[in-house]
Design a protein around this nucleic acid. Structure first.
Lengths: 222, 222
DNA sequence: CTTTCGTGATAGTAATACTATTATTTTGTT
DNA sequence: AACAAAATAATAGTATTACTATCACGAAAG
């Protein structure tokens, strides 16, 4: 049973420690997946769970921090998967390709974690992930390390890019670009397909090819 | 005096037709720039303008539609600028470079339009633009052509990419990628600089170089 | 000169985003 | 099995948000 370390300032009481806490995580993910973050409220969530609004407020200050919690969880879990799945790979080309696939492909529920359904988590991050930082509080939140898992993943990718080509000038920007584009093209493909070259359903492979082409064309030593 | 055609379903009464309507546009832009979209409410806006909440509701159904209005306005205006500034350019390389610059550079207030300050509009789009479509209603809104200006810009860019290299496989995806990355890297640079390779202030030129490198490496015929 | 239109003023409602307090149940410990 | 501590439920209350409805007034347009 793996567990992901989450910034303690994101919660009031650690939801992983209690029955209700885990229920909140599980049902938040399901509920946000279903109705979207805007329509998601603690009141409605409480009803779903069979607890009270006040009960949820004992775990999370507000729904925005809960979203950052979930997003952190996702990126921490993804980094863990990337590390285990690239441990025995030495070739940076293959490592990058593996990462691009892991970022893009639909996820299967990881049996090792009982209370979060990762197959729902991926579409949530695709649709809602960037809302965590696209706020006026971004800088302040960043200083409190709210986005650390994102940053660590980005750094990891950036370092592999440099392994591939130590002279590439924009490893960090390209790393964050890969993450964002994996998500955005996925969202577009499913919701605004005319903004992509991909057919509407489950053509994640085409996104992967697009990203591979984009990345390796750019970082190839000239 | 240029004006941008906006989807009529985005408003109840056309704000461009009246004094109060123009005031709403002008002060919305200023207010969203100042406090961010989440903290922006019609009540507070009404106080700023010296009108009432109900007064604003006569123009816009809700703040989300107002944001889509503003975003449409921005993309419509940008497309107009792109067209005038690339009219005499034949070389698709130069056209693409021009577009990347126009997408990325800080904007000066356009004296031709009196009631919207474009220099504030650009940072608003950077921070808030993607919130217009990252919702459960994206598909439905898309069908109502709420995102048409974005789509048209994307198509325009995609066509120039094909002009440059008719065999490039992902013109639409690369077009939407250029738009998104121009904005995201700008946001990161100003707010989460460790996710980029750019120094914190006003290094839009570096974003432009990054994007140029990314785009032309990818579309160069192999 | 009178009808329409734009705006202001006021009022009211349901939902959201919280905080506080007290009671009850579950659990972990001896 | 007894008891304390921790977790949860129940209830109540507030301020703000997101609206809708109605009426009155002044300006402009026919």
């Amino acid at each position: 049973m793996i567990s992901v370390r989450i910034n303690e300032r994101l919660f009031i009481r650690n939801p992983e420690d209690t029955v209700l806490g885990k229920k909140i995580l599980k049902h938040s993910v399901e509920f946000i997946y279903k109705v979207g973050f805007e329509s998601f409220t603690f009141k409605k969530l409480a009803e779903e769970i069979g607890t009270t609004e006040a009960g949820i407020y004992r775990y999370f200050e507000n729904k925005h921090k809960l979203l950052i919690y979930i997003t952190s969880w996702y990126f921490g879990w993804l980094e863990y998967r990337i590390k285990t799945q690239t441990k025995n790979i030495n070739d940076p080309t293959l490592k990058l390709k593996k990462i691009i696939s892991l970022l893009t492909e639909p996820v299967e529920d990881d049996e090792q974690t009982s209370y979060i359904d990762e197959s729902l988590l991926h579409p949530i991050i695709v649709s809602e992930g960037s809302k965590t930082y696209l706020t006026k509080q971004a800088e302040e939140n960043h200083k409190q390390d709210f986005f650390l898992p994102y940053k660590e993943l980005s750094t990891l990718i950036g370092n592999i890019i440099l392994e591939y080509n130590p002279n590439y000038k924009y490893p960090k920007s390209l790393a964050s670009t890969i993450i964002e584009i994996a998500h955005f093209q996925n969202f577009f493909m499913h919701n605004l397909p005319s903004l992509t070259d991909f057919s509407k359903n489950n053509q994640e492979n085409e996104i992967i090819e697009f990203l591979n082409d984009l990345v390796f064309s750019s970082i190839k030593p000239k």
